[in-house]
Amino acid sequence: MDWTNHDSDIRMWEETPVNMYLDDTYKAFVDSIVPRSPELGELYGMIQYYGALDFDTDEYVIMSMNSLDVPLADVGAEVLNTAARQYLYERDGEENVDSSSGGTYFARLNMDERLAVMSILLGPDRINYFPVQENFGLEELLPIFPIMNRLTFMGYYSEWWGYGSTRSLPPNQRVLEYFPGSWEQVGYPGPSLGYRAARSYDYTAGT
């Protein structure tokens, strides 16, 4: 395979500062969309076990959200945690909504509870669960969660994880270092120069 951007001059790039609030929240989120699968691993081989946590999809989502004109990673985490807090409040009353753990309500939930919260954020009553943000109107807030969903798919199932040690560098400096694990899972062989796959099915004939 022709690894990309081999000629790039790889410079040091500002590391995204470690922020547990963001980290925990996004890890919990991407893990809910693309979880590890012990079952598939057992049935079809170890490679099928791995999920978004193993392929750092949370980093991809945070990086992408923060590369927008108005950085959105913080707001995205806020959306999840506000909704989780509201969910806990409605279910348990005051007892579960103290902010002692730094506001990372979403990451504290089990998988079913997370999915329930995420459902609300895509459901018809979602408006009631969004955080009030001074700098954002509702029409800018509402699309954030769908964007986070789409990014998770692209981050996980594209080649991004294969950029290895260069995956957090600016895009021009990334070099594909190894074959992405997700491609192995789905059986995508990677880019190709062509296939002897022309078919001559007579589609014009009747059945």
């Binding site: 999915l115 995420m118 459902s119 895509l122 459901g123 769908p146 969903n149 789409r150 998770t152 798919f153 692209m154 996980y156 199932y157 594209s158 080649e159 991004w160 997700s182 491609w183 789905v186 995508y188 880019p191």
Partner: peptide
């Protein structure tokens, strides 16, 4: 298409929330 784009199109985009809803 390749799997990132394909999965986003068929499984990652909806106005109806998640399938279990």
């Amino acid at each position: 298409t390749s799997p990132g784009i394909n999965s986003t199109m068929i499984y990652g985009t909806s106005q109806k929330g998640y399938y279990f809803q």
